[in-house]
Design a protein around this nucleic acid. Structure first.
Length: 812
RNA sequence: GGGAGCGUGGCGGAAUUGGUAGACGCACUAGAUUUAGGAUCUAGCGCCUUCGGGUGUGGGAGUUCGAGUCUCCCCGCUCCCACCA
């Protein structure tokens, strides 16, 4: 019988759709399992990265469904975003039209892959039924103080003409446009993710099923560090300068105060002094990209202000320095040249004092560069002789007593700027009165929708440019008001979509179904979201928890980040011209083949090199499955006796192998080791072919294919469903059953004992499982010519016997 | 500079967690079949070898009866963050 992949695949995709097989069940006693892959941006066509992501998720979904779980496996569209707007500008097609057409195209491609989605729960984030809830949620955040507006320097992408979050700036460039990001002072909406810095940091510890890499990236991004805040009194002024340091122990080495050019004191001075303002301009002109900063010299300017050292009472100069960041700590530091490399370089350049206060030995040593390691305190009065750690504790408590400082914890994490000056996003439900008063849109007036009539030729913010849309009236006073014309960062939508899948049609953001399905048991996606999406989503659920809307704090119990799909060593991309179109492969070789290849060729978390020959190999295997089983479907049986006495050796071995493979495939899928699961199925099929060369046992072959079809089903579901339908079990749904194994049979396997002499392997001896005694083995070795020659004329001083494994003779 | 991870045949990768290194697949070689090509099937396939064996998981040391696996030092690669006080 010929393998016609197109026919079979279409047939089963329709069958699954019509029978509603993959709909998550609302009323059932089965245990829930929520499997989710990161939803795609509807760019128009699926690429190999999607194929990989969704093939992985589908194996899990099908496996769990077959294992008796009530599976939620939904799919939707991250449908707001710049590309739709760019298409509108270039082709004068409305972003909505463009997006919906893309969704239809991609949906049909996903269906061709045979993915087991519950399409009844499909969501599109650009749908007002979706975003109305996040507008409400934003108002909740606003009312509880977790959303606020402030003027500050923000990252401005001059190409996309919008503000970007810190997380969206990669190496000083916009994450989408790649354009160097500029600093612009704007009034913007922020979410107080920093309120959750400690919680988000601690929460990482509970995420034991997340990749270490992602945990460490988030930990670094949150960037917790503990130290102290110290006040330095300005001479001839009531003011103090507060600095943050992680090394309060080095305070006796302080020889200058460094202020950020953006520090309030710097700004004040600049107003009065053109030299200062000139210097600040100079600092800003140098730019902030990585390369520029690496080359940049330490620049400083003595403000002629002086502070008093809280202990030595010496006068210390205050400098404005280009390497002090306003965004971290207090924007001011005390410079300790002996123990900080930046301060060291700065002190050399401006001829400032370098006082060593930490030393490897008690006497100190010559410093060619800053000594940043721990050591013993010297030149530090009452701290002398203490270790770094002891000194830190002592100095903090002393500072506290003096009222000059205190213990403090700082984070690198900044609040999340969510305003975007773009059209194709969710409008921010806020309006402003003439005097600038902020008025939240009343809930009843939601959703605030986007206007359709946009002039795409005009540059700038389309909502702001619109002739009428922004003009409205205050709902309370009737006074004229102007709508907020910015939209949300599209990461706002993707930070809670997993919750919406639980009850996609709920009148509220989500309902009781949320508590039933959440958290997501297994989440799968690209590592590029390690910080952005995964941190924001965690933040949303933490804040939902704080607002009493969620019982849980962490949305994703287990996470897998799949590797990239490469071609010729590089990520597939249009610009490199090395893309391979999944649809073409599906048409030519079948969805089963492409799924199998992509799961077999590399472990899920590693990059995968595309291979034209490799996919042919996978196709060969699918065809071998087809030809072996299609010839024997009528033999299928679930009954096979445990009685070994009637079996010959090869029958026995095949039976054991079937059970072993069943156990291994089950184990491997549970551990996301699809490549080895498939390899063991290939081995089993090879054994099947070998067996038939010399044997005939219809009952055993029938049992073989009964087990094999179920085991292979999550990987190549169309082929297995079709072949299953040709067996007498066709009334039983193969997608809802999973085979079992019998350890008793597995244990009847022959045991190979490795024979070593002085730790070197010299051979093996085989035993049936019930005859396996050290003394027997020793005798057998002595009676074995090939092995005994290593023992002849030698004295055995020791034997090491590991049950069921090996026997090692130590001889002289 | 800080952090995380990884080094196994020509290639992608296995190795029940300390017990026969190289499963499975790709490529390659030989043979069968075929008018030919393709497809399919069979056999071989780390390196060296005097065919006894020797050697081999980036390099070096160590622990152990035994190390790809554990410890230490070095070398190399990848990713993330980065003038973060």
């Amino acid at each position: 019988m010929e393998y016609k992949h197109l026919e079979i695949e279409r047939k089963w995709q329709e069958e699954w759709q019509d029978s509603g097989l993959f709909l998550a069940n609302k009323n059932t006693d089965k245990k829930k399992y929520y499997i989710l892959e990161m939803f795609p941006y509807p760019s128009g066509r699926i690429h190999m990265g999607h194929v990989r992501n969704y093939a992985i998720g589908d194996v899990i979904a099908r496996f769990k469904r077959a294992s008796g779980y009530n599976v939620l496996h939904p799919m939707g569209w991250d449908a707001f975003g710049m590309p739709a707007e760019n298409a509108a500008i270039q082709n004068n097609v409305h972003p909505r039209e463009w997006t919906y057409a893309n969704i239809e195209a991609m949906k049909s491609q996903l269906k061709q892959m045979g993915l087991s989605y519950d399409w009844a729960r499909e969501i599109k984030t650009c749908d007002k039924k979706y975003f109305v809830h996040e507008q409400k949620f934003f108002l909740d955040l606003y009312n509880s103080g977790l959303a606020y507006k402030k003027e500050s320097y923000v990252n401005w992408d001059p190409v996309d003409k919008t503000v970007l979050a810190n997380e969206q700036v990669i190496d000083g460039k916009g994450w989408r446009s790649g354009a160097p990001v500029e600093q612009k002072k704007l009034s913007q909406w922020f979410l107080k993710i920093t309120d959750f810095a400690e919680d988000l940091n601690n929460g990482l510890r509970a995420l034991s099923n997340w990749p270490k890499k992602v945990l460490s990236m988030q930990e670094n991004w949150i960037g917790k560090s503990s130290g102290a805040l110290i006040n330095f009194q300005l001479i001839n002024s009531a003011e103090t300068i507060e600095v943050f340091t992680t090394r309060p122990d080095t305070i006796f080495g302080a020889s200058f105060i460094g202020l950020s050019p953006d520090h309030p004191i710097s700004s004040q001075l600049a107003k009065k002094n053109s030299e200062v303002s000139g210097f600040i301009e100079l600092c800003k002109s140098i730019g902030s990209s990585t390369e520029e900063l690496e080359k940049a010299d330490k620049l400083g300017m003595d403000t002629s202000l002086r502070v008093v050292h809280p202990y030595t009472k010496k006068e210390i100069p205050v400098y404005i320095a280009n390497f002090i960041l306003m965004g971290y700590g207090t924007g001011a530091v005390f410079g300790c040249p002996a123990h900080d490399q930046r301060d060291f370089e700065f002190a050399k350049k401006y001829k400032l004092e370098i006082v060593q206060v930490v030393s490897k030995t008690k006497s100190g040593h010559k410093l060619k560069e800053a000594y940043t390691e721990d050591g013993l305190m010297i030149n530090s009065e009452f701290l002398d002789g203490l270790s770094t750690q002891e000194a830190q504790i002592k100095i903090i408590s002393d500072l506290k007593n003096k009222g000059a400082g205190r213990e403090a914890i700082k984070y690198k994490l900044r609040d999340w700027g969510i305003s975007r000056q773009r059209y194709w996003g969710c409008p921010i439900p806020i309006m402003y009165l003439d005097d600038g008063t902020i008025v939240p849109v009343p809930e009843d007036d939601l959703p605030i929708e986007l206007p359709d009539d946009i002039d795409w030729k005009q540059s700038g913010n389309p909502l702001d440019n619109h002739p009428t849309w922004k003009y409205t009236k205050c709902p309370h006073t009737g006074k004229p008001a102007i709508r907020e014309t910015d939209t949300f960062d599209t990461f706002f939508e993707s930070s809670w979509y997993f919750a919406r899948f639980c009850s996609p049609n709920s009148e509220t953001m989500f309902d009781d179904e949320y508590n039933k399905w959440m958290p997501v048991d297994q989440y799968i996606g690209g590592v590029e979201h390690a910080i952005l999406h995964l941190l924001y989503s965690r933040f949303f659920v933490h804040s939902l928890n704080k607002l009493g809307k969620s019982k849980i704090k962490e949305p994703f119990d287990s996470l897998v980040t799949q590797g990239m799909v490469l071609n010729n060593g590089a990520k597939m991309s249009k610009s490199l011209g090395n893309t391979v179109d999944p649809e073409e492969i599906i048409e030519r070789l079948g969805a089963d083949t492409i799924r199998l290849f992509i799961l077999f060729s590399a472990p899920v978390d590693k990059d995968l090199e595309w291979s034209d020959q490799g996919i042919e190999g996978s196709n060969r295997f699918v065809k071998r499955v087809w030809s072996f089983i299609s010839k024997n479907t009528t033999l299928a049986t679930n009954e096979f006796s445990k009685d070994f006495s009637t079996l010959n050796g090869e029958e026995k071995n095949l039976l054991i192998k079937i059970h072993k493979t069943t156990k291994k495939v089950t184990h491997d899928i549970n551990n996301m080791q699809f490549n080895t699961a498939i390899a063991s199925l290939m081995e089993l099929l090879n054994s099947g072919y070998k067996f038939l060369e010399k044997n005939k046992n219809d009952n055993l072959v029938g049992f073989f294919l009964f087990q094999f079809l179920q085991l292979i089903n999550p990987f190549i579901p169309h082929v297995s469903n079709e072949l299953w339908s040709l067996t007498k079990y066709k009334e039983e749904n193969i997608n809802l059953i999973w085979p079992t194994w019998d350890d008793e049979i597995i244990n009847k396997d022959e045991i190979k004992i490795i024979i070593q002499i002085n730790g070197k392997t010299r051979g093996t001896l085989n035993y049936s499982s019930d005859i396996n005694e050290e003394s027997t083995i020793v005798d057998d070795v002595k009676n074995n010519k090939n092995l005994f020659k290593y023992l002849e004329n030698k004295k055995i001083t020791r034997t090491i016997y590991v049950e069921n494994k090996l026997l090692n003779f130590i001889v002289k």
